[in-house]
Amino acid sequence: MFQKIRYRLLLSYLVVFASLLGIFAIAVRVAFTRKIKKEKNHEEDVKQGSRGYNLLLDY
């Protein structure tokens, strides 16, 4: 009697859980890629700055 309702409720819970898990995974990926890009840009800025400093010392 309640078998059909049980499966529909289970399916709805699984959809909600999968949606939340997917949203969380996307958020973590976006945050991680932003952090990596920021660190890479900072490293490039440091390298650029040290090159400029070395050029000033050459004169």
Rank of each mutant, 00 (worst) to 15 (best):
A27W: 11
K40T: 00
Y13V: 08
K37W: 12
R29N: 12
G22L: 09
K37P: 05
V16L: 13
K40W: 11
I23E: 00
G22M: 05
K35F: 13
I26Y: 15
R34N: 15
R34S: 14
T33K: 10
K40A: 05
A31G: 05
E39P: 07
A27G: 12
R29K: 08
I23L: 10
A27P: 05
V28Y: 08
L20H: 05
L21E: 02
L11G: 11
F24V: 11
K38F: 13
V30G: 07
Y13H: 13
G22P: 00
L20Y: 14
V15A: 08
A25R: 04
F17C: 03
L10Y: 11
L21H: 03
A27N: 03
A25L: 13
R34D: 10
T33P: 09
K38M: 10
I26D: 07
R29T: 11
L11D: 09
F17N: 03
L14R: 03
I36F: 15
K37T: 11
Y13T: 03
I36G: 02
L10W: 11
T33V: 14
K37V: 02
F24M: 14
S19Q: 06
F24Y: 15
A18W: 12
L10R: 08
L10F: 10
E39K: 15
A18G: 00
K38Y: 13
L21Y: 09
A25W: 08
V16P: 03
T33S: 12
L14E: 01
L11P: 04
L20W: 13
T33C: 06
K40M: 02
L21M: 11
S12G: 04
R34Q: 13
L11H: 07
I23R: 04
G22E: 01
I26H: 07
V16R: 08
L20E: 01
F17T: 01
V16F: 13
A27C: 15
I36P: 06
V16S: 10
A18P: 01
K38P: 00
L20Q: 04
Y13P: 03
I36D: 01
K40L: 07
L11F: 14
K35Y: 15
S12T: 05
K35C: 02
A27I: 15
A25N: 04
I23H: 06
V30M: 12
L11N: 14
V28G: 03
L10D: 04
F24S: 06
I36H: 14
K35D: 00
K35H: 11
R34H: 14
A18S: 05
A27Y: 13
I36T: 09
I23P: 03
S19T: 06
I23A: 01
G22C: 02
I23C: 02
S19K: 08
A31P: 02
K37H: 12
R29W: 15
S19Y: 07
R34W: 09
F17E: 02
I26G: 02
F24H: 12
L10C: 10
F17A: 08
F24L: 15
T33A: 09
F32W: 12
S12P: 07
V15P: 06
V15Y: 09
